[in-house]
Amino acid sequence: MSLLSPHRRRLGPGRPIPLGAALGPVLLLAIWSVASALGWLDPRTLSAPWTVVTTTGDLIADGRLQDNLAISSQRAGLGLLFGVAIGTVLALISGLSRWGEAILDGPIQIKRAIPSLALIPLLILWLGIGEGMKVTTITLGVFVPVYIHTHNGLRGIDSRYVELGESLRLRTGTFLRRIVLPGALPGFLLGLRFAVVNAWLALVVVEQINSTSGIGYMMELAREYGQTDIIVVGLVLYGVLGLLSDGAVRLVQRRALTWRRTLAD
């Protein structure tokens, strides 16, 4: 007769790996380095990692990187600001009133189905090719996820809490401040995570069309001269910016939602 082990077979994915999130990117970088070092990768196809690093140094030394990054960040930041404000206000109107929902929700769902890229010809005709057009395009890409998730969060607030508010005779202001807004916050923050990534994605699109500044323009120029290293610098920059801004929102999320004791996050 054999003794039964008291441990049951584990069905979940198991213990988290320390620094697990970094493992995939590091592996990718290692393969890229080895392939470049052994000459498997033609530098015209893809520059070696160290070339990218030295190019980054050169770009910083002559100020091109900072200047382009500054103008790109300004565009993304402004678009994000307007988009988040518009998305939040629309979600509140549509989430708190049946009339608001009837009028607003349909058009926004239609907008959601149209890619920002497809709107650019029209926006150029209306707004020209200046900053206004660029910021508008980013705003249009940003407000939709903020609206969708905030609206969803508002609609998802348990009706029992509304009843509680009624039984305590809360004034509308208190009801909004204590029940509606905090209840919709998880949805809003999820929308914000999509929004920051969308801001950078929309930036790529607007800066590679009719632009004379920004990271996208720098990459577009590099394509004309066949400078793969600069293109890779731009790509890495976009990736890092996206990751950093998503990480920032997640940090806010963790701070703001400490009351939620969920498994993930």
């Binding site: 509680l164 305590l168 905090p182 939602l257």
Partner: peptide, 23 residues
């Protein structure tokens, strides 16, 4: 008048004291 429900019906996103003084 006050109502006590079967579920405690506390707002999970407000701390205990805020829940008590809600009204």
């Amino acid at each position: 008048l006050s109502v006590v429900f079967q579920d405690a019906r506390l707002l999970p996103w407000q701390r205990v004291l805020t829940n008590v003084v809600l009204g």
